[in-house]
Design a protein around this nucleic acid. Structure first.
Lengths: 234, 234
DNA sequence: AAGCTCATTATGTCTAGATATAAGGGCATT
DNA sequence: AATGCCCTTATATCTAGACATAATGAGCTT
């Protein structure tokens, strides 16, 4: 248990505050002393205390409001952080060779569900892609993607047979906004074939919609091979 | 596009730096000017520039090393943050009433797979719980949990028939370490029955292991009702 | 009782400058 | 060529103090 000393660093202050929260010295919902008071107690400065409390608030332990003060959250909203690496990196790190294949490319009018989901005019042409990502010879991910070409100059001319649309988009289009969902889906026949598994198998799936300055850019459905886990530590 | 002005706030500086990264003024892998230089350019101070760059590094855009300088990451490791609320809150927010039921409570020797997974001695007694969480009358989550009683005084006497083990643990045991995984599983007969769905249906599942000062505390498998999505925005 | 105004106060941010520390690069040694 | 030492430099953090801003709550008005 860190004991208050003189000249504590903001890290040490964070630890002391955390300890006090855990030991209920500062109970849930209760108000902490003001930064000024804490600075005095820790014989530090307000700037340093501010950083400690600010970070603890970001981590979900405290709630801070101007004038109202700093409060201990009763149910610390734990924030799990998942790193979303490029699939190429994710596969390379396992020691396997990353391989990519374009399955289908088509320009088609936006289907109704897509229009609704992304907020684009019904019937507008969209670019539809289906791709496979392999770790060595093992299927890793089956990707189904729609791209709204209007807002992305050059996308209709881009060559997606060598590398995936994500690579291209990351390079060309800095998105400003992203929605990411994880869910479990049932492998239909197509997915099962591509991922080399049985129809009906549970498939860990990610759905990703990105916008650029309010304009919808792309929606991707990423079907992971059976056994995939998205894991984080904290 | 934010243009550099005098007396910029750290937020404005962040925006300018981000713009420059997006516009490849500072290309991936390239080195940024030093904090001192940037402070001069933005007619700000090093402290302010430092905060801007530090936050951008936390967000995964930059990499900073003492003496080496600040570098643009070529593949911005996007970090998706998921808020992990208490299930009670998650259900209340939908407007439904949260209901809880204990399905089974047993003390048993740790099965081999659990011992291996959590690193506890084989055969050691563990507390096994199965619970249901409902949103109104609709099944929301089926929870299967193991608790290592050694490190948690009082857990064998705790009453889990009224409220769930998570509520109790959060109150009593401030964990120091957590592993959280998301995956897709296939509903077996038990899960299907409790979640009121068909055997074989894909089930979004979370696995959570927590430790207290290196000692394993609990493992929970959380099976969510069909249709569940874990969503985040950034 | 309800609504409004305003002073107070805690946090939010910035300035200017100092010290601490990690790590790259050069130089000398082996 | 490889190793080890040291100097330099860029970031990391701290100090002390200032002003900015949101929100509370007291006191006044309606």
């Amino acid at each position: 248990m860190a004991a208050p000393r003189a000249n504590m660093s903001y890290r040490e202050i964070k630890q002391v505050v955390l300890d006090r929260i855990h030991n209920k010295i500062w109970a849930p919902d209760s108000l902490l002393p003001s930064e000024t008071d804490l600075a005095e107690e820790f014989s530090s400065t307000r700037t340093t205390v501010n950083r400690a409390l600010r970070e603890l608030a970001e981590e979900g332990y405290l709630e801070r409001k101007r004038k109202a003060g700093t409060r201990v959250l009763n149910a610390p909203i734990r924030k799990a952080q998942f790193a979303i690496p490029l699939i190429r990196d994710e596969i390379s790190e396992t020691g396997s060779e990353y391989r990519y294949a374009l399955v289908e490319r088509a320009v088609m009018p936006s289907p109704a569900w897509l229009s609704a989901r992304m907020g684009i005019p019904h019937g507008r042409d969209v670019l539809h892609l289906r791709c496979m990502h392999y770790a060595g010879n093992t299927p890793f991910q089956y990707e189904v993607r729609w791209i709204v070409p209007d807002s992305i100059p050059g996308v209709l001319e881009a060559d997606f047979s060598i590398s995936g649309p994500n690579d291209w988009l990351v390079q060309k289009v800095p998105f400003t906004n992203l929605e990411l969902s994880f869910l479990a889906t049932k492998a239909d026949q197509t997915v099962a074939e591509f991922l080399d598994t049985q129809t009906g198998d549970p498939i860990f799936t990610a759905e990703r919609i990105t916008w650029l300055r309010g304009q919808p850019v792309t929606l991707a459905k990423l079907f992971f091979a059976p056994g995939y886990r998205m894991t984080t530590h904290l």
